[in-house]
Design a protein around this nucleic acid. Structure first.
Lengths: 127, 127
DNA sequence: CTACGTGCAAAAAGTTTGCAATCGC
DNA sequence: GCGATTGCAAACTTTTTGCACGTAG
């Protein structure tokens, strides 16, 4: 049911070859070089489906519009670590575990997302 | 140079009496009960100035438009819970604690953000 | 062939701005 | 009274949607 189109291929290629998160507008411009007449709506539709498929993740920085970057390790529950120096995002394969009791009375926790911020190994070594 | 207007007072009161971050739209609706004819532009202008004054902080969740919550002297480290049914966001005053050991070798954790997702008390009661 | 995916344009949602009228100090 | 602040509407930006056509499987 999922088709391989020139548009989807170009969009994914652009995102995977960038080594930083891209905005929808940047993706349109870069992928538009390969597929003329590429529409912004197609970019959004593909970003949404690729995100749901777990191939992309949304990077949300305060005061900025969302950016997208590839997820290389998928399938299992994991979290993220963002380096405050190089902005890169790393996977964290550990998990604090049972968080259900953290919620207030009457609340039911179904899932959670955790992002750690700090300095990555590379940036620590550089200082 | 900074004036006290009914609008600014109402907006700040609404945000400070909510125990969860509010969206500009929610603020407009709540403060509009006290100040008829309150315009959304006024809400945005006040949110911007109050944030710059350091009285409010922006809460940014992935895929969501920004929400605002007060910064008070009593402000402390806390997290957020988003209801998957009504989309509202609540404060969670609990914290899993020491997460430093979750990071990979060589990484230094400075801070973390945790978002729980599930059903809030209201939506649980409704089902 | 048969839908899923696309392009275009319009619509919706979110935010900012111009301007005359209003109101705090 | 003076000038900061407001309300309204229009402008802008970002994202979504409707619909007819193109095209992958």
């Amino acid at each position: 049911m999922e088709r391989t189109t020139r548009q989807k291929t170009a969009i994914l290629t652009v995102i995977e070859s960038a080594r930083r998160p891209l905005s929808p507008q940047e993706i349109l411009e870069a992928a538009g070089l390969q597929v003329a007449q590429l529409g912004i709506a197609t970019v959004y539709r593909n970003l949404k489906s690729l995100t749901q498929e777990g191939r992309l993740q949304i990077v949300t920085l305060p005061g900025e519009s969302p950016r997208y970057e590839p997820i290389t390790v998928a399938s299992h529950h994991h979290h993220h670590f963002q380096c405050l120096h190089c902005q890169r995002v790393f996977d964290v394969h550990d998990c604090p575990g049972d968080l259900k009791k953290m919620a207030p009375q009457g609340f039911v926790v179904e899932r959670h997302e955790l992002t750690l911020y700090g300095a990555c190994a590379d940036c620590n070594a550089a200082t």
